[in-house]
Simulated assay, not measured.
Amino acid sequence: MNILVTGGTGYIGSHTTIELLNAGHDVIIADNMSNSNQLVLDRIKDITSNEVKLYGIDLLNKKELDRIFKENTIDAVIHFAGYKAVGESVEKPLKYYKNNLISTINLCEVMEENSVYNLIFSSSATVYGNPDTNPIQESFPTAAHNPYGRTKLMIEKMLMDVAAVSDNWNISLLRYFNPVGAHSSSKIGEDPNGIPNNLMPFITQVAVGKLDELKVFGNDYDTPDGTGVRDYIHVVDLAKGHLKALEQIENNNGLEIFNLGTGRGYSVLEVVEAFEKASGKNIPYEIAKRRPGDIATCYADPSKALKQLGWQAEKGIYDMCKDAWNWQEKNPNGYNS
């Protein structure tokens, strides 16, 4: 199949591109490179021995987006492109609503105008808000607690409405939990701009000496050790979930929602302990106040993905930490090392 991957040079997008290429698909990437690096394409070629066509465009530019569909035969789209930092979304909500919503509307309009109806959307567990119980099932109520999560939820609702009025559309909404780790080659991994917003790159940058200590945001949550509990999933497992979703939408099943997680929650301090064992590095940390929009506990019930997609996470927390550290150790300054 010919797959358009929006945001394909980003963290999850690049790992998914590798899995797509290894599975024999052809990949075209649309990415404005606002949170990624051109060198990702070279690394993807090194790993897969395949070229990827890049359109360095912003999805807010509908004319340029349409050009991709006019110049290529597209069978399906995997949509990663969008802003993703919870904290920044609280500080700059209009930036998030404008970018994430309008870019997706543009994409769906251009897809429809070019008779392309197969879409996998990169959603998030943040759409569940602060759930009453865990593990979280797809049927749970949705109520996002920050602008980032609300953009994901609004897009989901929009795609549900689109699918409801046309049998042409085949849409898979993949609700990710917390992607971590890196490719086993250590050639691609998570390379955030500035101080990381996510736990694992913060830990790895402390381990490599770029940052002095880890900031643990809150130790007074209602959890076993007071720190936030999340379902961490290896990014390669997550990428493979997209291939399974791609197989599913080929069967014209309308719209489906799937949790992609491990079904196991780890606290911040448990992740620190696991990382220290996997890397042999000591991670000093400081307790800081809670961040706006964060919740205490969030982990998946991934049984629907196993039953309907034949997918389940294979890598444990040790592998996640080990691969994340190998990436950071060999690329201390990310792609600019």
Rank of each mutant, 00 (worst) to 15 (best):
Y299N: 10
W311E: 03
R290S: 01
A274C: 01
Y232M: 05
P284N: 10
D294W: 05
M320F: 12
C321H: 00
Y299A: 03
N253T: 13
A296L: 12
D225Y: 03
I203W: 09
F258D: 14
I287C: 09
K307N: 12
G265D: 06
G228Y: 02
A296R: 07
P302D: 00
L243P: 10
I287D: 01
R290E: 09
T223V: 10
A207V: 03
D225V: 04
E250D: 13
I249Y: 02
D301I: 01
V271S: 05
Y318P: 08
L269E: 03
A305Y: 05
Q248W: 06
S279L: 02
K210G: 11
P224D: 02
E270P: 04
I295M: 14
L309K: 07
L211M: 14
D319C: 09
G316S: 09
E270D: 13
N259L: 01
L246F: 05
A288E: 05
G263E: 09
A207N: 04
N282R: 07
G228K: 14
W311A: 02
E276K: 00
R291T: 08
P302R: 06
D231E: 05
T297W: 11
L255K: 10
R291E: 09
G316Y: 02
M320D: 11
T204M: 09
E273G: 03
Q248S: 12
R230F: 09
V272F: 07
